[in-house]
């Protein structure tokens, strides 16, 4: 990846005069690749693409997200997934069989769940599933929220950032694709974890962030002990 060509673009900016290089966040007009978004332009695998600096989470199949139960309707839970679209979790998508009249016993309104997007149709009806060992109800820990566009930065290249955080903070951390983050550990560690996450969100676009965060954690931990 060429680092020099990363720069801020606004919608309509010309990125390339080769229409074949149109990637994510771009469109082609008059044979030129133009940006669709206000964000950072970069070339990736021979394509120009633009990563937005702001925006909402749009669910896509396979995403693991953190949701809160909003409502219980006939054999479905309606789940807020921090998106313009609400998710539907059918009782058959739970790991064990549940009776219709027992739905609110298992998942109450307000409960947080870790959940996967199973399918999204063209009208943006979002079907969710909990049928995986790694998914389930969040009974411990805390949930925080960041801008979904900052999620890749929080995870880091190949998980570098998140693995560093987990190790340094002694916490269990999960980052949902919808920008909700779950942390579990002792209280002091969780405080520091959430503080760090917010710093990463704010400085997501800067360089050498992982090293700076590492340094920040060292200083914070020293002050604590």
């Amino acid at each position: 990846m060429d680092r020099m060509d990363r720069n801020v673009v606004v919608p309509g900016d010309i990125l390339s005069d080769d229409p074949n290089r149109s990637g994510e966040g771009t469109y082609v007009k008059d044979g030129c690749v133009r940006s669709l978004l206000y964000g950072m332009a970069s070339s990736y695998k021979d394509k120009m693409r633009v990563i937005p600096l702001a925006g909402k989470y749009v669910p896509s199949p396979g995403d693991t997200v953190i949701g809160t139960i909003q409502d219980i309707v006939f054999s479905n839970w309606i789940i807020n997934i921090n998106s313009p679209y609400e998710g539907l979790l059918h009782i058959s998508e739970l790991p064990r069989k549940i009776e219709m009249n027992e739905m609110s016993k298992y998942l109450r309104i307000g409960s947080s769940v870790m959940i996967r997007v199973k399918d999204v149709d063209s009208t943006m009806k979002v079907e969710l599933t909990m049928n995986d060992r790694r998914l389930g109800i969040l009974t411990r820990g805390r949930v925080a929220e960041i801008n979904p566009t900052r999620v890749p930065r929080l995870i880091g290249k190949g998980g570098s950032m998140i693995n560093m955080l987990k190790k340094e903070l002694n916490c269990n951390i999960f980052v949902g694709q919808n920008g909700r983050i779950w942390v579990d550990g002792n209280d002091d560690d969780m405080d520091l974890a959430l503080k760090t996450v917010l710093i990463i969100e704010k400085e997501a676009h800067t360089t050498g962030l992982t090293d700076r965060i590492l340094e920040f954690l060292r200083v914070e931990k020293e002050a604590r002990s």
Partner: peptide
């Protein structure tokens, strides 16, 4: 255009915002 661009100009030396949206283990 200028006002939008200037808002993030302090980071002209851009960091490695990442290619992989890794789905990590719990």
């Amino acid at each position: 255009r200028k006002v939008l661009i200037d808002r993030y100009s302090h980071m002209d030396d851009m960091g490695s915002c990442d290619e992989v949206v890794a789905e990590e283990e719990i």
